[in-house]
Simulated scan of single mutants.
Amino acid sequence: MSTDKQPAVEVTAQDLQGHGVVFCPNPKMTLWSGHPRVFIDVASTGEGKCPYCGTVYKLKAGEVLGHAH
């Protein structure tokens, strides 16, 4: 059994949707690994983890989020 962890997916402020979320599975994932689309909050803490596949999404270092009006 492998204990290797998946590397985190770095996202930029431009990758975020709506109020600072990304969706998983993301467009770069292969079709066979698909699961229901979920939105993951990255803006609040700088990272979030998919409850289905465990992929971690992290805001790229130095990225600045704009404030919603």
Rank of each mutant, 00 (worst) to 15 (best):
G62A: 11
Q6K: 08
C53D: 15
V42Y: 00
T3P: 01
P7C: 03
T3Y: 00
V42M: 03
M29G: 00
T12V: 02
L31E: 14
K5F: 02
G66E: 15
P25G: 02
V11D: 11
T45L: 13
D4M: 07
K49E: 15
K58W: 08
G54S: 15
D41F: 01
E63I: 00
V21G: 01
V11F: 10
T45V: 13
Y52V: 04
L16M: 09
C24V: 11
S33C: 07
V64K: 09
C24F: 08
L31C: 11
A68T: 06
K28M: 07
K49Y: 04
W32A: 07
P36E: 14
E47V: 06
C50I: 02
K5Q: 13
P51Q: 04
H19M: 10
P51N: 06
D41E: 13
D4Q: 12
H19V: 09
V21Y: 09
H69K: 10
H67P: 01
M1G: 15
L31N: 14
F39C: 10
E47Q: 15
L59I: 00
P36Q: 12
D15G: 12
Q17I: 13
L31Q: 14
I40K: 01
P27H: 03
D4K: 07
C24I: 07
K5R: 11
N26W: 03
G18Y: 04
G48C: 13
T12K: 05
L59G: 00
F39T: 12
G62K: 10
P7S: 07
Y57D: 01
D41N: 15
V9S: 08
S33Y: 06
V64M: 05
P36K: 12
A68W: 05
V11N: 10
H35V: 07
Q17R: 11
V9M: 13
L65R: 12
G48D: 13
E10D: 14
A13F: 02
H19C: 09
H19Y: 11
G18L: 06
G20F: 04
V64Y: 00
H67G: 10
K28H: 06
V11I: 14
G54C: 11
A13C: 07
W32L: 08
A43G: 09
T30Y: 04
T45F: 10
K60E: 09
V56W: 02
G48N: 09
H69R: 09
K28C: 03
G62N: 11
S33Q: 12
E47P: 05
G34K: 06
A61K: 13
C50H: 01
S33L: 08
P27S: 05
L65Q: 12
E10M: 14
V9N: 08
T12F: 02
S2Y: 04
S2F: 03
D4P: 01
K5V: 06
V42W: 00
Y57W: 05
G46T: 03
K58L: 10
C24E: 09
T45Q: 15
L31D: 14
V9K: 15
M1E: 15
Y57Q: 03
A43P: 03
K5C: 06
P36L: 08
